[in-house]
């Protein structure tokens, strides 16, 4: 394996990690601040992709689709919060898991009823078409670099919001000392709703950004959701900084593991079993890494609660 290929694979890993971060950021905020397990976060990502794809097709422009999909995703999130989730905040985690799992089933079928079960297409915007030659024969799509940039921008924005603004201070305080914050006269319900809506919008944004690269189909949120949970568990629940580091870590481990392991195993095994074992190990690697990290730091890399 050449150095060029290794660098490209590293970049692929970072790019995938950033996409995971976009999904995981909202999840970790909601989980951390509100102590609410929202399995339906994945379907909010899916809704974002569907809204973006249909709005882009309707307006004929990716950018209008993106801009319109964000408030639409926000509204969907708030409606869900009002209809279902707010009745669950006081309940235990099991009720939350069951109810939000029900929301997944319901919304997956609803999407199928509205848009049909065939995957949708969302074209790459003309401005971001084409690619950059990183190694001979391989174009690195400009759009993927745009995902990388957008993810880093969102990460920066979130850091400023959480660490440097009044509302961020409330969110951080709410994560650790919710009753105290409420006692000081802060409308904790309103704060929760704001965080929830923002989380839904972030998931929707991730969905729209992923739509031109990944297939938009019912159930697309389910695979991402599992990885997003891995990310927030490694990062420390409630920590945006942790989610960012963990997302990049998971993205790089996933990508490099999958591409390197079969070749590494071939040094010690015959070609055919090396391929099989490498593929199997590669898909387990993320979970092995999670187990190792949790063994050393049971509360994740950057725990929020003491």
């Amino acid at each position: 394996m050449s150095l060029g290929l290794l660098l490209v694979q590293g970049l692929n890993g970072l790019q995938f990690g950033v996409l995971l971060f976009l999904v995981a950021a909202g999840l970790t905020l909601v989980f951390g601040v509100m102590d609410f397990i929202n399995l339906a976060h994945g379907v909010q990502y899916m809704l974002g992709a569907y809204l973006g794809a249909s709005l882009a097709a309707w307006t004929g422009s990716f950018w209008l689709g993106l801009v319109l999909a964000l408030p639409a995703a926000l509204v969907c999130g708030l409606v869900l919060e009002w209809l279902v989730f707010r009745h669950l905040y006081e309940r235990d985690h099991l009720s939350q898991v069951l109810a939000t799992f029900g929301v997944i089933l319901f919304l997956n079928e609803a999407v199928r009823a509205i848009w049909g079960s065939a995957p949708l297409q969302m074209p790459v915007p003309t401005l971001l078409e084409g690619g950059v030659q990183l190694m001979p024969g391989l174009q690195y799509p400009v759009y993927r670099i745009a995902i990388l940039v957008a993810g880093l921008a969102v990460a920066g924005l979130l850091w400023v919001l959480v660490e440097r603004t009044r509302i961020g201070a409330l969110v951080r305080a709410g994560a650790t000392h919710a009753p105290m914050v409420a006692a000081l006269g802060v409308d904790i319900r309103g704060l929760f709703m704001l965080v929830f809506g923002f989380g839904a919008m972030l998931a929707g944004f991730a969905g729209v950004m992923a739509a031109p690269v990944l297939s938009v189909d019912p159930g697309m949120g389910d695979t991402v959701l599992i990885l997003a949970f891995v990310v927030i568990t490694i990062g420390g629940i409630g920590s945006v900084r942790g989610a960012f580091i963990a997302a990049l870590l998971v993205g790089v481990i996933e990508t490099l593991g999958r591409s390197l392991l079969p070749d590494l195993l071939r040094l010690v095994m015959a070609a055919s079993p090396a391929r099989q074992a490498g593929a199997a190990l590669g898909s387990m690697l993320v979970y092995i890494a999670m187990a190792l990290i949790l063994a050393v730091r049971p509360r994740g890399l950057f725990p929020v609660r003491g």
């Binding site: 394996m1 050449s2 060029g4 290929l5 490209v8 694979q9 692929n12 890993g13 790019q15 995938f16 190694m135 001979p136 024969g137 391989l138 993927r144 990508t255 490099l256 999958r258 591409s259």
Partner: peptide, 9 residues
Amino acid sequence: SAELAKIAA
């Protein structure tokens, strides 16, 4: 993307 880079190589 990881597989595509392998194909290109």
